[in-house]
């Protein structure tokens, strides 16, 4: 039975091999550092409460069998429901906020922000969102009383 010293030696050999063969890519460290630029102090966080990929019973089994992916985000006073279709650089988001209200919508992805509008019935639609992490920022219409809400980041 190998003793603790032998285990520790093997572990340090492994750590050396990892640092050598599989270091954290520099561009990812840069991206993680730059992520701090997305910090905001005024918006309330809407946390991801449902992702049909993971939360639908038997999700793994029905994968690929069609049907849009559903994402639900919840803040204290606002719920955002999003349906995702498409893949790659052509994801489409169709969404609804509750309670329904007109608002501005920012779609934050990569280093970019796209703008869209949420109509009086609380509906929105955004095309050509690229795959990768995305977050939605919901800004109350001018004259509105609500606070801004931002969703958790989620990869499409």
């Amino acid at each position: 039975m190998p003793d603790e010293a032998e285990d520790a030696e093997l572990e340090s050999m492994l750590r050396e091999a990892a640092a050598w063969l599989d270091p954290v890519p520099a561009e990812l460290i840069q991206a993680a550092t730059a992520a701090f630029g997305w910090r905001n102090v005024d918006a309330e966080l809407a946390e991801l409460v449902l992702d049909s990929l993971l939360d639908r019973p038997g999700a793994a089994l029905v994968r690929g069998s069609g049907g849009p992916r559903l994402l639900h985000f919840r803040a204290d006073l606002l719920t955002i429901e999003v349906e995702v279709t498409g893949t790659g650089s052509a994801c489409e988001l169709i969404g609804q906020v509750f309670p329904a209200q007109r608002a501005g919508l920012e779609i934050r992805h990569g280093a970019q922000v796209d703008h869209a509008a949420i109509d009086d019935l609380g509906r929105f639609r955004v095309e050509f969102v690229p795959a990768g992490p995305v977050s939605l920022y919901c800004r109350p219409a001018s004259g509105g009383t609500g606070t801004a809400v931002v969703t958790d980041w989620i990869p499409l």
Binding site: A35, F36, W38
Partner: peptide
Amino acid sequence: FQTTWLRLVE
């Protein structure tokens, strides 16, 4: 990797 760090920002 990127999503994990973006999550921490929020």
